[in-house]
Write a protein that binds this DNA or RNA. Structure first.
Lengths: 348, 348
DNA sequence: CTGTTAGCGCATTCAA
DNA sequence: TTGAATGCGCTAACAG
């Protein structure tokens, strides 16, 4: 095992290729870049051979330094362990690779100080564009970055940042959920959400929910934020009469609710219906499965990158907001008919 | 909205700072770097002011070009949607940030061509070290990279690659699982694993399992690979007499098995016990919860980075293999006593 | 302690 | 078509 302290020195460079091929660096540069058309076939061939024999790889750092194009995209994620973030990131990454970009992922763990550090780091790497999926405190840094490069928000708005936004059509999603619950015969709906820490999508879902409930005389609705008392609150909710259901505003809420319901000894999902935003792979495993509104995360990620690319290519259109629609995935947790039957059977 | 085609040009550079502070670039460089001790307080202060006023950020690309140190670590992941990979990545990322490194994540989606592309890209960015959690086909590229930088394998060995390896102590883990099942009174154990595509950890678990069964006269064991016929195979297994249990070799297998058992109408987990490697957040939700062997993913990720850092600092010790022990997390899926009771109650 | 100088690897003028 | 020269932003000798 050798030391790597100065490993870079040993790498084959453009000069090596030029010497090996008996041409100038400029020609090699042209071969590497988009000016290959300017080269005679003979020279191009010699260069190609030299490159292959030496295993030459152009140094992106140097290219970036010269041209100002690093082919690097940064992504700031609030919580890398949230399946939604991962799914979107997967979409972004795929799009990046397809267009010759690489992705620098920065997870903030919902921590402002980490967000600050990462933003500083990203700037220092001359990334060409930034995808933001955090609360976006440190507005000053973000604004500074935005002056230097295109920026696109994912899922959550950051108010003073006037930039493209890609995410879910929250009002539509909430309408789909509430409407589905109503159709299935539920009359009392409890929206369970993570704490409203300023995340715009959470707020939108909450507001839309209130509006949706107000529009539907047949329904009663309430809102609950996740906290230590979740189980108690659910206990109270379960004690109510009539067909009732939970609407979990994201995967985290769905996990917490399912856990709490289980702890309460609730028979899933006969005592209470459940519909959740986001579709996680374990939803089918609980009770008769959890009905979900799946977000098109792949498309969201790809679109985010696409926005960046458009801006990088000089698009100066006004900022856009891309709202995607979720897909209703029907499972057992919202079929009270069958559930009621089952309950009666048990009670007999 | 302005165009960003040549945005980089506008960034404030070291020269700007030097002029603004009335000093030389070298002094600014010393201030930025680790040579701040060489500067007089007066000059240091002037530089500091200039930096703050101008909002100067050193350009890592340029620094990297000069020093051969990019402060960039690459990570090659086989499947970014596997919770294990995410968890390890989270550990790596945390360690990176703590030491001033940034992480370039490359997901191969288990695809060899993508692995090739990513390896090429990583090389071109002059990353300082590489963490590999893939099958490692494209040995030529990997070997080439290994000549230029330290490399550490995570979870899976890549045979001809003589490098540090961080992962689970698979024999110990399997022993813990089998022993636990035996103690709980199970007699017939079925190991369920993903297809053995060459992943070393899968093979090790499989081999260890066979050895473990051979050592224990009280136990009978068999092995099953995930495929379309899983449900049929489990059906056959369930038909056997006596207390039996599944041992899922990872989270993917656990998900597939739980799904199949559910589809078979099996009463979880009274008809059959279940223990799973990896601890996913939904394990508590199924039946009385799924007993798990949790991997210390955070530690694994941190150690991987640590190996890299040691090598980068000149450590030339022989390659090490760091094996971590899992932690047994007891849940309802391996408590046949209670289960048997419940089953009898139901049958009455 | 501080400034001057000379590149790191590459792209891009400008001549030839 | 090709090559020589210049500089991207920064660090690392070397002098002073």
């Amino acid at each position: 095992m050798t030391s790597f302290s100065a490993a870079q020195r040993s790498r084959v460079t453009m000069l090596d290729v030029a010497l090996h091929a008996g041409v100038s660096k400029a020609s090699v540069s042209r071969f590497i870049g988009d000016d290959r058309a300017l080269l005679s076939d003979a020279i191009a061939l010699r260069i190609e051979h030299a490159i292959n024999e030496l295993g030459y790889r152009p140094n992106q750092m140097a290219r970036g330094l010269k041209r100002g194009r690093t082919r690097l995209i940064g992504m700031l994620v609030a919580d890398i362990r949230n399946p939604y973030s991962i799914a979107v990131m997967h979409g972004v990454e795929t799009a990046c690779r397809q267009h010759g970009y690489s992705l620098v992922v920065c997870n903030t763990d919902r921590d402002d100080e980490q967000e600050r550090q990462h933003l500083a780091a990203l700037r220092s790497y001359n990334i060409e564009g930034l995808i933001v999926n955090t609360l976006g405190h440190h507005l000053d840094q973000l604004l500074e970055l935005q002056r230097e490069m295109p920026l696109v928000l994912v899922d959550r708005k950051v108010e003073p940042l006037h930039s493209d936004l890609v995410g879910l059509d929250n009002p539509a999603a909430v309408r789909m959920a509430v409407e589905h619950l109503e159709q299935q015969g539920y009359r009392d709906v409890l929206l369970v959400s993570e704490a409203t820490d300023g995340t715009s999508s959470r707020l939108e879902r909450l507001e839309s929910f209130k509006a949706e409930i107000a529009r539907r005389p047949a329904l009663t609705g309430a809102v609950l934020e996740l906290d230590g008392a979740l189980q108690n609150h659910l206990h109270t909710f379960l004690a109510k009469a009539g067909p009732k259901a939970l609407f979990c505003a994201n995967g985290i809420a769905a996990l917490a609710c399912t856990q709490a319901l289980k702890a309460l000894g609730c028979h899933l999902f006969e005592d209470v219906g459940l519909i959740a935003l986001d579709d996680l792979d374990w939803y089918p495993l609980v009770g008769n499965g959890i009905t979900a509104l799946a977000q098109p995360t792949q498309a969201i990620g790809a679109s985010a990158f696409d926005c960046l690319l458009k801006r990088l290519r000089g698009d100066t259109e006004p900022t856009r907001t891309l709202d995607f629609l979720p897909q209703l995935i029907l499972r057992g947790s919202t079929t009270p008919c069958r559930s009621e039957l089952a309950r009666e059977k048990r009670q007999r």
